[in-house]
Design a protein around this nucleic acid. Structure first.
Lengths: 316, 316
DNA sequence: CCATCTTCATAGCGAAAAGCGATATAATAT
DNA sequence: ATATTATATCGCTTTTCGCTATGAAGATGG
C-alpha cells in the first residue's frame, strides 16, 4: 500500500506548525486544500491521524510517527531543490576535462585552482590525451571539454573550437644559461646543447622537430624525454638542456621556476590553444561556467604576455 | 522551487532499474506514464536528467544525484507504509493504561508481560490512580484505558465498562498463620492481629473498613500502610498481620509469595474489576488488541479461580 | 548498409486529484 | 450565551495521472 509522499510532507508541516491553518500558510496553500489532503490520507490508511474533537489539532501516535517520516521526505526534497539551484548556477556538478599534458599542467591547472575556489562543489576530473583520444572522449560522453592546440582546419564538423591563446612555441632554458648572454644566437651556438623531448607522440614533439628544422638543425641530441611538465621543469632548471614549450607555459612557470626563453625566432605552428566541445550539447551550467572562466583568464594572460614581450623588445 | 517527491521516487526507480520500461514495470505503471513524469520533471527544473540521444537511457550527473535523493524519499515512504500496516494490526503504537495500584501490580502487570511478547512494538505507559484521576485521564486523552473496580452505577454515561473479574475481596495472611489452623474463625480470634492498610484514599481501604464492620469489628489496629503491592506482600509474608486484597491478587501472588486466605466470609462490595474506556473513541488497534487480550486472560484466570474454590470447598 | 528490434517520446482522452473561495460546523474563549 | 477561532465541506476549475495507440530514434545483426 503505497502512500502519497506529498501527503506525508503536508502532515509533517501541520504537526510542526501545530495546526491546519498555520500549516497551510507555511505551505503556501489554502486551508481547505490541506484539510482535504489529510482527510484523503486518513481515508487511505484507514486510521485517524489526529485526535478527534480537539480544536488545537493534536496528532495521534500514528500521526506523529508518520509526521516524522514526512519530515525526512521533506528534507530530502528540499535538498533536491537546493541541488538543482546550485546546478543551474554552475556551482555544483562534475566537470570532466581532458587536454594535452603540458598545457594542462602549465596553464589550465593554475586556473582550475581559482575556479574551484569560486565553485566549491564542482568536482573536476582531469585527464590527459591528444586529439584522437580527446575527440573520442567528447563523442562518447566521457569528456565535457577538451583543451588542446588545434588548427581550425582540424576541427571536426560536429564540434566547436574556442581559441584561448596563441600557440606560440619558444625555446626554453634555465635562467643564467650560457646562451642567454649571447646577442645573436646562431645554429652553431645551440648545437652543443642537448634537448629535453616531450612524449614522442605529442604534437609538441613534432613542433620540436619542426622548429629545429626551421633553423637548420636536422639532427639533435635528446637527453631526457617522457616526463610531465614538473619533471621537464626540474631537468631544465638543473641543467643546460634546451626544450620547446608553449610560451604561455614558460611565462607562468617563471613564477616558480627560473627559466628564460632564447631570443631565437623559430617556426611556430599555425595553431591555437583552445577548448574543443561538442557543438550540440552545450553541457551542464558548470561546463559553460568553466569555459567562460577559462576564456576570461586566458584573455588576461594573453594581455600580460603581450605586455611583457613589448617590454622585452624595447629592452632587447 | 518545490519539486514533486513522487517524481524523484520514479526517477530513482528508473535509474536503479536502468531504463524507462523496466522502471515502469517495477512501479506497476505504463511506460508512457513514467516517461511523461520525467519529461515534466525535466521541464520544471529546466535541466536534462538523462543524456540526450542515448538508448540505454543514462542519467546525467544531476539525474544521478537526484535519483539518490529520490531513493531516500522512497525508503521513508516504504517505512511509512510498513508502519501503518503494523499499526493496523495493533503490532505497533503506544498504549497508556492506568489503574488502581494493587490490581495493576498484582494481576495486570503479569498479563502485560505476555502481551508485550506478542506485540513487541507496542509501547506501554503504565500509571496509577483511582476513579476520578482515571476518568479525567480518559477524558483529556492522556489515557487509553483505565482498569479499576467499579459498580455499574458508577460508570459515566460517555464511557464503556467491560468487567474482567469479580471484585471479591478476601482476608489474606501468610501461609502457616495461626488463624489458618482454626476451624471456625470468630471475631475474637482475629481481634489480636494488626492490619496492613492500603492507601487511605483507595477503594480497597474503604473495603477494609466495610469488611471488618460486616463481621462486627469496628475498630482495628493498622501497623503498615501506604505501600505498593510488593511491600504489602513482604510485610504480609514476614509477619502475622492481616489485610484485605482482591482474591485474584492473592491467587496470582501465591506463585511467588506464600499467602493464604482466611475462610471468613466478609461482605464484599458489589463491584467488578474491569476496563473503562471512552465510549466513542475505540482507540488505535493496539488498544483494542490489548482489551481483547485482557478479557481472554481474565476469563482463563476466573476459571482457574473458580476451579480452585470448588476444590477448597470440597476439602474444607 | 539495410532490415529489424528495442526503447523511448508523443497524442488523445477519461478519471482522479489539487487547487481555490465561499460557507457551514464545531470547540474554545469571553 | 456569544464571540472567536479552527476545521470541515461544497462547488468549481485546472492540473496531473493513468491508459492505449502510435511514431521516432538509437542499437543490432546480417
Amino acid at each position: 500500500m503505497k502512500m502519497d509522499s506529498e501527503h506525508l510532507e503536508i502532515l509533517s508541516v501541520i504537526v510542526e506548525k501545530g495546526g491546519l491553518t498555520e500549516g497551510a500558510e507555511a505551505l503556501g496553500k489554502s486551508q481547505p486544500s490541506v484539510s482535504r489532503s489529510m482527510a484523503l490520507l486518513e481515508d487511505r490508511i484507514g486510521m485517524p491521524l489526529f485526535e478527534p474533537g480537539r480544536r488545537p489539532l493534536r496528532p495521534t501516535e500514528l500521526g506523529a510517527t508518520l509526521a516524522r517520516l514526512g519530515a525526512r521526505i521533506r528534507a530530502a526534497n528540499q535538498e533536491a531543490s537546493l541541488l538543482v539551484r546550485r546546478f543551474r548556477q554552475g556551482l555544483a556538478g562534475r566537470l570532466r576535462v581532458g587536454g594535452s599534458p603540458i598545457f594542462m599542467d602549465g596553464v589550465v591547472a593554475t586556473m582550475i585552482a581559482e575556479f574551484q575556489s569560486r565553485h566549491a562543489d564542482v568536482q573536476i576530473d582531469q585527464s590527459y590525451g591528444y586529439l584522437d583520444t580527446l575527440e573520442a572522449g567528447l563523442r562518447n560522453g566521457g569528456l565535457d571539454v577538451a583543451i588542446l592546440p588545434l588548427h581550425s582546419s582540424q576541427v571536426p564538423p560536429d564540434m566547436d573550437f574556442a581559441p584561448l591563446l596563441s600557440g606560440n612555441n619558444v625555446i626554453a632554458c634555465r635562467a643564467g644559461h650560457p646562451l642567454t648572454r649571447a646577442r645573436g644566437i646562431t645554429l652553431a651556438d645551440i648545437a652543443p646543447f642537448a634537448w629535453i623531448a616531450p612524449p614522442a607522440n605529442s604534437p609538441l614533439y613534432r613542433d620540436l622537430q619542426r622548429a629545429l628544422k626551421s633553423i637548420g638543425q636536422e639532427d639533435f641530441r635528446v637527453n631526457f624525454s617522457g616526463g610531465t611538465l614538473a619533471s621537464i621543469q626540474s631537468v631544465l632548471a638543473g641543467s643546460d638542456a634546451l626544450t620547446v614549450l608553449p610560451y604561455s607555459v614558460v611565462f607562468l612557470s617563471r613564477r616558480t621556476v627560473p627559466l628564460e626563453t632564447l631570443p631565437l625566432k623559430i617556426d611556430h605552428p599555425d595553431r591555437q590553444l583552445g577548448v574543443l566541445t561538442m557543438a550540440e550539447r552545450q553541457g551542464p551550467p558548470a561546463v559553460r561556467q568553466f569555459n567562460a572562466f577559462l576564456q576570461a583568464e586566458c584573455e588576461r594572460l594573453q594581455a600580460r604576455m603581450d605586455h611583457e614581450q613589448q617590454v622585452t623588445r624595447r629592452r632587447g
